[in-house]
Design a protein around this nucleic acid. Structure first.
Length: 226
DNA sequence: AATGACAGCAACCGCTCTGAA
DNA sequence: CTTCAGAGCGGTTGCTGTCAT
């Protein structure tokens, strides 16, 4: 039995919140407090999903939410907590007054990851990148050591093949090859063979980039008209 | 000026957790 | 113990601004 949806999708808005919606939500919560998010939209006269209301309140409208850039001290705290806790954004947020899990997660993905990489530190393990390479080599050697000789030969051949083969979408988790989840293109497309029958791009990737480009074009045309 | 690429952030989606019945 | 609904979390996506070519 499937779970009932948190809202009737046909009767709710999606996308950015309007000023009026924000005001309605703030007014309702100020009057009644944070209660049942499922019933809140109806009670507040909002055509939104309860989850959406909760997110909007917690991440943006709550009075104690601190807006603005992260300080270096906050960055260092996030790095420290992440090294201890991993991607437990809500717990990390709990230790940074005024910051939300979503905000910290975004900040991590857009700033801190790069900051650590520029320091030569792997953001996943918080170890020096060189050390990671060394550990990986040791792991590979030690695991291979237990293989029989014929298995070892096969393994070596496979390793060699992997090293010289073109990047494959299927040999990595999708997020590894996605560049900020944009432009997910296969090897053939990267060579300019977009319409090739070997193309393995997800259907949405072309349409997404095309959609984005056409929208930018439209927007700029619109801006220039005004 | 036009176009494309990238960055940043708000919001959504789907899953898990938790507690009540 | 099982089932279910609601809340919460983390990953992902979409939109928009800005910069480079």
């Amino acid at each position: 039995m499937g779970r009932s949806p948190c809202c009737e999708k046909g009767h709710t808005y999606k996308g950015s919140w309007t000023r009026e919606e924000d005001e309605r939500l703030i007014a309702y919560i100020q009057a009644h407090g944070e209660g049942c998010w499922r019933s809140l939209p109806k009670a507040a006269g909002l055509l939104r999903c309860g989850k959406s209301c909760r997110l909007r309140w917690i991440n943006y409208l709550r009075p104690d939410v601190k807006r603005g850039n992260f300080t270096d001290e906050e960055d260092e705290l996030i790095i420290k907590f992440h090294s201890l806790l991993g991607n437990k954004w809500s717990i990390i947020a709990g230790r940074l007054p005024g910051r939300t899990d979503n905000e910290i997660k975004n900040h991590w993905n857009t700033h801190i990851k790069r900051k650590l990489l520029s320091r030569g530190i792997d953001p996943l393990t918080h170890r020096p990148v060189n050390e990671q390479a060394a550990i990986h080599t040791i792991d590979t050697v030690s695991s291979t050591a237990v293989l029989r000789e014929d298995e070892r030969q096969t393994n070596q051949e496979l390793n060699l093949e992997l090293q010289i083969s073109p990047p494959s979408l299927h040999s990595h988790p999708p997020q590894v090859l996605r560049k900020r989840n944009r432009k997910v293109i296969c090897f053939y497309c990267s060579l300019g063979l977009r319409n090739s029958k070997e193309c393995t791009c997800e259907g949405s990737s072309h349409s997404r980039s095309i959609q984005h480009v056409s929208f930018c074009t439209w927007r700029k045309a619109f801006q220039s008209e005004n």
